[in-house]
Design a protein around this nucleic acid. Structure first.
Lengths: 231, 231
DNA sequence: CCGCGAGTTTGATCAAGAGCAATGTTCAGA
DNA sequence: TCTGAACATTGCTCTTGATCAAACTCGCGG
């Protein structure tokens, strides 16, 4: 593993208040790994022996039911902590995380967690905030799933991905990682068929453009309107 | 407000490692309040100026959509911390909490949070765990909602309430707080009509007994089977 | 440049459960 | 004891979106 550069961490919230030498210390204890698209970083139920920070790429956090259905609980973007089961004193990971695109993550052994909390100013607060915002996000999704019709849920899911990862292209806002119809249906509790029909309809209406595994939102405004229509 | 007794806290996880004098200190800074059934402890969007501990009773945590639909995100039972928005550095509560039965809660002003974390051993860990288990619960609910048919969701919701609050009666396990059909439908994203039909069917089949606002599960085992049938 | 497979599209059918409507029941308070 | 409000039940209809089925297309590896 090559020597990691300090600038990797110095701008990220969990570490931004730390001095050079502390960051060095943290990096020296980290492992860095690269994950291919589709590779699992860790799996539900496995021993939670490390915690992670995503440096580059995007992850899906997935839960699988006993019956084999799966659902995408949330996405992780660069700079976020994840797999922080140790904070919760859990000994296994409660979900699986999979690289949605080629990704790079740092990780540390669980035993360092208490030390990080105690030693590095801002780390505790930051991880609380991560937990909290994740809780908020999931509550949002839950509420949506329980109350909204499929079209609105799908619109909201697409918008969430765009907000989290969208980058401007000449055509509009593009989701920065590959997404299949199946993926979207796994986020919204519907089927890939329904998602496909919706995307076709939206494309016909000029709101999105989509190719095989990529989606560009050409008219975000109308999609937003759609996602929170009252009727 | 009458003087609070130290034994109120000494057995609860967030405080169990503390000495008498520390508990006294914590209690002296707390306010205690009683809430009637149906009363709100705090409301979504309001300024998050206090954090809470439920001493007695049961709460529902509710989110309301712009369109006015509401959903019950989770229940709180005695001994649990709640309204810990401050930990997340949020300045408003992300959900509303309402007393499902007559309840008593302690609360402290937000400004004490950092002090609690720093000063009282185990408090930080405990609140992490609270957050974490809540995250787990909600993920569970989300997965269920996205993948399971209505009957299984309703069965699971009833079982969850029984597990959390069930007490033995001569007939079976009774949910310890009032629950309407509407409440259950708000937990499961269905309608009160559907819940009513299901309860009737289950009653006919001898698995539950229910009166106006109370539910007794007479045959938990069969309900469990129902809640995770594979077909 | 071909062929194969993963991902997608679209049509047709059908069932689950929402919505609507009307009636029934329990309970708290006057 | 009566009345009204809150809660519950049940029948009927109709819509949404799941399911089944089949064909299509893109893009990659050989």
């Amino acid at each position: 593993m090559s020597k990691l550069d300090e600038s990797l961490l110095s701008d990220l919230p969990p570490f931004s208040r730390l001095g050079r030498s502390q960051i060095r210390e943290i990096l020296d204890q980290a492992s860095s790994r690269r994950y291919e698209e589709g590779a699992a970083i860790f799996r539900e139920g496995h021993e939670a022996d490390r915690f992670f920070l995503l440096l580059d790429g995007y992850l899906r956090v997935i839960r699988t039911t006993p019956g084999g259905d799966q659902i995408i609980v949330l996405h992780i973007s660069p700079g976020q902590l994840f797999g922080i089961a140790p904070a919760l004193e859990r000994d296994t990971y409660p979900a699986t995380s999979v690289a949605a695109a080629e990704s790079i993550a740092l990780s540390w052994p669980v035993r360092l967690w208490p030390e990080f909390i105690a030693k590095y100013e801002g780390f505790a607060t930051e991880s609380y905030k991560t937990l909290g915002s994740r809780l908020g996000q999931i509550q949002e999704t839950l509420t949506e799933l329980a109350t909204q019709a499929v079209e609105k849920r799908v619109a909201a899911a697409v918008l969430r991905m765009v907000n989290q990862s969208g980058r401007k292209t000449d055509k509009g806002l593009e989701i920065a990682f590959p997404v299949t119809r199946q993926n979207i249906s796994d986020m919204t509790g519907t089927t890939l068929h329904t998602v496909s029909r919706l995307l076709s309809a939206w494309e016909k209406a000029g709101m999105v453009r989509s190719t095989r595994k990529h989606i560009v939102v050409t008219d975000p405004h109308r999609l937003v309107v759609l996602s929170n229509a009252t009727d």
